[in-house]
């Protein structure tokens, strides 16, 4: 995980923002919370109108995260396509969770096993605005933005 993290994160932070507007509202996701789920990819559905990333977490629970549309994902840096995430691959997902606590959310960032930071976020989760911070927070073992900001003395609440 450590290999190349900082370099790739830096590159990702320079990504050109591309259109990220869905055909639906994001009122079911809580944009004020950004949380970490570690797991293994079950399926990466690179389909319109939204991409969906399915993972099984370390306790065997299934999760689904909604991302942006394929045309938008292709325009991100690094570019995201249908073979970016493969079944069985270990990933770390930073997401804005469903408000009702079920196992799902709007994806913010995905960090793959070699440390590459991907930004398949739609407008429902702005964790992608913290592409520089999140790899370091994940490396440090923080499991949420609130936890990381409290520990590092950053964020609005400080």
């Amino acid at each position: 995980m450590k290999k190349g993290l900082s370099i790739v994160a830096g590159l990702a932070a320079c990504a050109i923002a591309t259109a990220a507007v869905a055909h639906h509202s994001f009122s079911m996701f809580d944009p004020s919370r950004e949380e970490v789920v570690r797991g293994t990819v079950v399926q990466w559905s690179f389909n319109s109108p939204h991409t969906l990333l399915y993972i099984e977490d370390e306790s065997g629970q299934n999760w689904v995260f909604e991302g942006n549309a394929p045309p938008s994902a292709l325009g991100r840096t690094p570019s995201i396509s249908g073979d970016t995430f493969t079944p069985g691959e270990d990933v770390v997902v930073i997401h804005c969770p469903l408000r009702d606590g079920r196992n799902g959310g709007g994806v913010g960032l995905v960090i793959d096993s070699d440390g590459t930071v991907y930004n398949p976020s739609d407008a429902g989760c702005s964790a992608n605005q913290r592409e520089a911070e999140w790899p370091e927070w994940v490396e440090a073992g923080y499991t949420s933005k609130a936890e990381a900001e409290e520990a590092t003395g950053t964020g609005d609440s400080q």
């Binding site: 639906h24 509202s25 009122s27 079911m28 399915y54 299934n62 689904v64 909604e66 469903l98």
Partner: peptide, 9 residues
Amino acid sequence: RTTAFAVPG
């Protein structure tokens, strides 16, 4: 009035 999101199961 708001949007719901279904998960597997």
